[in-house]
């Protein structure tokens, strides 16, 4: 099932931060990981990831560094900062609040662990 674009747009920064929580990644790797974790639910245009990443970097939620791969290609890795971690915690809380409220309006029983889309990211 594909999801409408506007549903996703507000939460992509949170998803990007969550992807970086269990290790530094470069852009392509993040897209792959997002695809895998979400079971191809998000059809994000890959180009839009970069303005997002650069904006997060400007706000110091992530930092970046260049690393040469075995194939000789240079990749730009992104790493979550402590400020980014705080931001993620805040966003997660906000998200839970939001979904709980939406579920309540829709008349679903709110149960712990019913996040069918994405498994909770592993904690460090």
């Amino acid at each position: 099932m594909k999801i409408e674009k506007s549903l996703l747009s507000g939460s992509t920064p949170m998803l990007v931060l969550a992807l970086l929580k269990d290790g530094d990644k470069y852009g392509y790797e993040m897209i792959e990981e997002l695809d895998r974790r979400s079971d191809h639910t998000f059809e994000l245009k890959e180009g839009t990831l970069y303005p997002l990443l650069h904006a997060l970097e400007k706000e110091r939620f992530v930092t970046s560094y260049a690393k040469q791969t075995a194939g000789g290609r240079e990749r730009k890795y992104y790493s979550l900062t402590s400020k980014g971690l705080e931001q993620l915690a805040y966003k997660e809380k906000e998200w839970r609040h939001f979904t709980t409220a939406v579920d309540a309006v829709l008349g679903f029983a709110v149960a712990e662990g019913n996040m069918s889309l994405a498994p909770a990211p592993a904690t460090i």
Binding site: K45, G47, T48, Y50, P51, H54, A55, K58
Partner: peptide
């Protein structure tokens, strides 16, 4: 195709950098 429109992200990148 996967990347999307270059025209669309060009002003976004410019605004950040």
């Amino acid at each position: 195709e996967a990347m999307g429109s270059a025209q669309e992200i060009a002003p976004q990148l410019a605004a950040i950098h």
